[in-house]
Amino acid sequence: MLQKLAELDKRWIFLALAVVVILPLVFPLGLPVEPGQMSRKFYERIEALPEGSKVCMSFDYGPGTEIECQPMASAVLKHLFRRRCRVVCITLLPDGSMLARRTLEQAAAECKAVYGEDCVYLGYKNGGEAVLRNMGENILNVFSTDFYGKDLSSMPIMKDTVNWDSFALVIDWSVGRPGVADYVRIVGGQYHRPILAGTTAVTAPEAYPFVNAGQVEALLGGLRGGGEYEVLAGIKGGRACRGLEAQSTAHFFVAFLIILANVIYFADKRKKIGRGSGERRR
């Protein structure tokens, strides 16, 4: 039996994993999502912002990582609009350009935020940290128009927006470079602005040292971070919460496979040792 399992075609495992992921998405299990300490800290930091505060949000993710970053970005945007904060959105990744536009448009429409007054989307600018550095001098030198080609100087939200000092908070949704490290180095290190970040699960371990050192105030990691924030922000039926159930079942399945593989390995090893000592006795 164990031998058969050891020789099992890996495609059966792919199929089983697909079933384990698809089932809870089709038939939700209703597993609870309990927000963690980091998500609470993130939420409380947004709650502490005074009404009318200006926040810069950078969408540095692409379609491949949309499922992890978009739910948290959307939930935080809605939370900011509900708190009557004003949001200036940018992206340092060309892939993020359309995703940022869609996320902002949806959140603004839902929360009735007025474009140009409560929010603006400046679009993509090439150069990564060079862009961040130039924004520290004058944002209008970097972005002369918004994503749609409209003049920024005529927009009320841009009236008193000069450089990083104009923002009460900077939030970065990132998947690598340009990303959290660049923001920590330039926006935090050089311009001393408070930073919050949301990353994919893969990049979260790289970002945690910045949290530990106090350079990033709070971090949301992967789909779990997004799901926890949706719960805190009171968003019903959010994408991250929907996906978290499937994530939980998939993790159980992967853990089961790891245990099973170890059992097979040690049983096989024991069998070989037994066979070896039997031959020696003969």
Binding site: L17, L25, G64, I67, E68, A201, L223, A246, A250, H251
Partner: peptide
Amino acid sequence: GYTVMARMSLFIGRVM
């Protein structure tokens, strides 16, 4: 562990 979580998320995203 985080990498596994991320890869699962990608697949979940596609199914959704």
